[in-house]
């Protein structure tokens, strides 16, 4: 599996580390226990195309949003994950 980093070009996946599904958004505390349970523990566990966050720790150290098929490992899109991490708390 190779990931085409928009900054570094195609690199083998050993250079990257994986965070998981890019879709869930951390809820604010006011949204209650159910929203937090959902965010922390429950997963769609997509079988097919999934948007996910990868970190290019062995290269440019950027967070990337990768569209990858979990059935085939085929990667169809890679883009910079702008606003990922702490910046996305409580936002859609």
């Amino acid at each position: 599996m190779r990931i085409a980093c928009p900054y570094c070009g195609p690199r083998e996946n050993g250079e990257f580390s994986y965070l998981g599904d890019a879709t869930p958004v951390r809820p604010s505390l006011e949204q209650g226990v159910d929203a937090m349970l959902d965010y922390v523990f429950l997963r769609d566990n997509v079988a097919g195309e999934m948007q996910e966050l990868w970190y290019h720790g062995g290269g440019c150290r950027a967070w990337l949003k990768v569209t990858r098929n979990t059935l085939t490992h085929e990667i169809s899109a890679v883009e910079a994950a702008r606003g990922a991490g702490a910046a996305k708390v409580g936002k859609r």
Binding site: N13, G14, Y18, N45, V46, M50, T70, H73
Partner: peptide, 16 residues
Amino acid sequence: DGYNSYAQRGNMPTME
């Protein structure tokens, strides 16, 4: 391997 998968095959970095 450390990423979501249903593909029943892995990649080289883990093998290494």
